Amino acid sequence: MAFDVLQRDGVQLLTQPYSQRRALLEDLFTTRALTAPWTLCPMTTDLVTAREWLESWTDVSGVEGIVIKPLASRYHPSYRGWTKIRRRDTTEAIIGAITGPLARPQLLVLGRHDQDGRLQAVGRTVPLRPDAARQVAEHLVAAGPGHPWSGVTFASAWGSGDVLDVTLVHLRPHGSKTARSLLHPAVALLVWLTPLTPEPYLATGLLMTVLLALSLYNANRTSRRKTSL
């Protein structure tokens, strides 16, 4: 996937504005008749098109959102001058395990019930900030016997042989309810992923390209013995 060109015919293009580099990139695909595996990253300055990409293209696994780039910007190595806008959705999940100490969790391993009522691992969070870790820790206790994930291991990364060092948890009991009874029906985490609007950026003459990234995990790939997240 080609989204920029930094040199052509031995000439450095780092100081050229992105609009010119993009034009050269498109010309390169045309004059060289480049085809698969070469792919020209889509680009638009139209707000309606950008919205459509953000809403519909992100249904495809691996497409997270869009990138906004100033048309007049130079290319600065090792400098992040672009703005990423990811599609964000709201969902609910249950905290079934954590990494790090119970008093200050580092990652949360999340689960949801399948159609048979079994708690299946569906993903994990990014590392928690200190304030978020403290807030979450107030509601968690180490799990006793009978946790749905007893004996399950979680890979540290997709396809990795390394295993996460996790602690199985329940929600802290309140009143007469037990921690175990709260685990399954409770909404232990609300993942707020609110869409961001691109209008302020387009108003200043910027363009949008599709942001491609690897999916963090596949929700359909879980097992009782080993789960990749």
Score class of each variant (00 low, 15 high):
Ala2Thr: 08
Asp4Tyr: 11
Leu6Pro: 01
Leu13Trp: 03
Leu14Val: 06
Thr44His: 05
Leu47Gly: 00
Glu52Thr: 01
Trp53Phe: 02
Ser56Arg: 15
Val67Tyr: 08
Val67Trp: 07
Ile68His: 06
His76Val: 15
Ser78Pro: 05
Arg80His: 12
Arg87Phe: 02
Arg88Cys: 02
Ile94Asn: 06
Gly96Val: 07
Gly96Lys: 11
Gly96Ser: 00
Gly100Glu: 09
Arg104Phe: 06
Gln106Gly: 05
Gly111Ile: 03
Arg112Gln: 13
His113Phe: 05
Gly117Ser: 11
Gly117Phe: 01
Arg118Pro: 03
Leu119Glu: 00
Ala121Lys: 07
Arg124Cys: 10
Ala133Cys: 01
Glu138Lys: 15
Gly144His: 10
Pro148Asp: 02
Val152Ile: 09
Ala157Leu: 05
Ala157Ser: 15
Ser160Ile: 13
Leu164Arg: 10
Leu164Val: 04
Val166Cys: 12
Val166Asn: 04
His170Asp: 03
Leu171Ile: 03
Ser181Trp: 00
Ser181Asp: 14
Pro185Met: 02
Pro185Asp: 02
Thr194Met: 00
Thr194Tyr: 08
Leu196Arg: 13
Pro198Arg: 05
Pro198Leu: 09
Tyr201Thr: 00
Tyr201Asp: 11
Leu202Glu: 02
Ala213Asp: 13
Leu214Pro: 07
Ser215Ile: 00
Tyr217Pro: 00
Ser223Lys: 14
Lys226Pro: 05
Ser228Tyr: 11
